[in-house]
Design a protein around this nucleic acid. Structure first.
Lengths: 122, 122
DNA sequence: ACTTGATATCGAGATATTGCGATATGCTTT
DNA sequence: AAAGCATATCGCAATATCTCGATATCAAGT
């Protein structure tokens, strides 16, 4: 598998699951555009114009490429790229590269776990 | 009632309930000390040294005064006071004044509502 | 009225975040 | 190997947040 998460993972017996860093996640979703991007990725076909995305790529399963996300936000390429890195640092999304494109998709498991832990910690 | 919330409230039929401003709440809980304070207020008798607090005041119902919260954080008086204002701006806590003291307590309803709305918006 | 104690507000330096253009890297095609 | 996209990284100015000490307010007691 070529999906890229980030550093912090833990091995508990059989599994290697990604961990939630509450501070990191909160910092990341503290920006409205990053929140939007995350939300859009929940239903890519509904929220993006995917005409230009490769036909073999399932946006929900495989992700959406940076330029298409950029188009939706209206922000600069560099800003969007670094926002996506930021989301990835918090493990809120994963990425994989296919050719020249980088596809980003939600990490639903982590988001769910984050919401649980946040509820505990407040 | 002398409890002070903040500006943003809405009248829906019979009720006047405080509203959740997701951005404001996220900004507020983006600070670890503010998150701690909120958490401590969930079980004041367990988390604070309440010896100096007036006997007639129920910490859970009536709140905890600033100086006692300050003692626990180890930060300066001014910082703690403004952190509490910050939490109040986001409606995460309410305050009331009794004599020289200002008592802060959690706004559980809003916190619950926030967690719901956050889950929707991500 | 004055002092004291609790809390709030002000002003400031240090640090972090925002969002951009410019530039670098990497892949694909010629 | 050169050119052309897609994406990532760098450097920067603007803005926001953090945390403090100093000062202001406000209530209670002499």
């Amino acid at each position: 598998m070529l999906w890229v998460g980030v550093d912090c993972a833990v091995t508990t017996g059989k599994w290697t699951e990604t961990m939630v860093n509450i501070s990191e996640v909160l910092k990341s979703i503290n920006n409205p555009v990053r929140r939007d991007m995350l939300h859009w990725l929940k239903e890519p076909q509904h929220n993006f114009n995917l005409d230009k995305q490769l036909p073999g790529v399932d946006p929900k399963l495989d992700g959406v490429c940076v330029s298409i996300i950029q188009e939706k936000t209206g922000l600069s390429q560099s800003t969007v790229s670094s926002y996506l890195s930021n989301l990835q640092r918090a493990n809120l999304v994963e990425s994989k590269r296919i050719g020249s494109w980088t596809y980003y998709r939600r990490n639903d498991a982590l988001i769910e776990q984050f919401l649980q832990e946040l509820a505990q910690s407040l």
